[in-house]
């Protein structure tokens, strides 16, 4: 089990952080949530978190803007971009992603949360079919309810790169059904393994780290039930490794939690898993 960092640039979550030092000294102007992006990716690199999942929220930065910048700014970090409805067509998404795979030696992944698609699983399924179709085949033809392509398909040298793996966020049975049809991996938002769908796919479980763990004191948590000392939190999370491939760390705007995780919690989990 390894960790991923979930990055939500919504201003509601980020606006209180006026105390973060500026990441770049050459730019006196305000770059808003981009500061958070820069801090987060540096922290992730520093503690050895190898993947960053960029959510696409209307209150934040477009994930399609954040991920190319992030890929360019990092050497090894993988970046997952959340694709939402009403942003780009499947063909344009595929083409833009093909360039990003070329630029980054294949470090891009896709994420779809049905909530960002007004629950339209049928649209998602067609979108994914077309995006993958133009990626894999040329010429490619498709005629569906929502999308149509004639004589499509990426050509060399855009073609032939590994397709970004797709994860679907699963909250209910409909999501699970969609995931079973299109997903390469799934993401869940509870820490109760009994509630996780068993699809035989790699799974990421989200854990809120808004001071989830401290050395001495206990604080209330917003979304996850993990509370306690470093040892307690590590003890609670380590068993998840039996079924979870990743822990998705959500620190909100508290970038320092990433360092705290890397310094205190991750080694304890590692020790518990590997003895």
């Amino acid at each position: 089990m390894s960790e991923r960092l979930v990055l939500d640039t919504s201003w509601k979550r980020w606006r209180h952080r006026t105390d973060l030092p500026r990441v770049r000294d050459e730019r006196p102007r305000d770059i808003g949530a981009w500061e958070l992006v820069a801090h987060a990716r540096r922290a992730a690199e520093a503690v050895g978190i190898e993947e960053i999942v960029v959510l696409d929220t209307a209150d934040g930065l477009s994930a399609l803007a954040v991920v190319p910048v992030g890929l360019r700014a990092t050497q090894r970090t993988r970046w997952t971009v959340e694709l939402t409805q009403d942003v780009a067509t499947p063909v344009y998404t595929a083409k833009l992603s093909a360039s990003l795979q070329r630029f980054s030696a294949g470090r891009l992944a896709w994420r779809i949360d049905p909530r960002g698609w007004r629950g339209r699983h049928d649209v998602i399924e067609e979108f994914v079919t077309v995006a993958r179709g133009v990626w894999r085949e040329r010429p490619y033809d498709f005629s569906g309810e929502h999308f149509r392509v004639q004589g499509g398909g990426l050509d060399s040298p855009l073609s032939g790169r590994p397709l970004p793996p797709l994860e679907i966020v699963v909250r209910d049975e409909d999501d699970a059904l969609l995931a079973s049809r299109v997903a390469d991996r799934i993401a869940v938002e509870t820490l109760d393994p009994d509630s996780w769908p068993d699809l035989g796919l790699p799974l990421a479980a989200r854990v809120s780290l808004a001071s989830a763990a401290t050395s001495t004191e206990v604080e209330r948590l917003s979304t996850a039930e993990v509370v306690g000392t470093y040892d307690a939190v590590a003890g609670r999370l380590a068993p998840l490794s039996e079924r979870a491939t990743w822990l998705d760390l959500d620190v909100g705007d508290r970038v320092e939690e990433i360092y705290r995780w890397g310094e205190h919690v991750a080694p304890r989990i590692g020790a518990l898993i590997h003895g």
Binding site: I31, W34, A58, L64, A65, V87, A88, Y92
Partner: peptide, 21 residues
């Protein structure tokens, strides 16, 4: 215009405007 949705284009563009000045 056929590539992107107007709102998607606005979100993508405004984010790049902010980063790039």
């Amino acid at each position: 215009p056929g590539f992107v949705h107007p709102w998607g284009a606005a979100r993508l563009s405004a984010a790049l405007q902010q980063l790039s000045g």
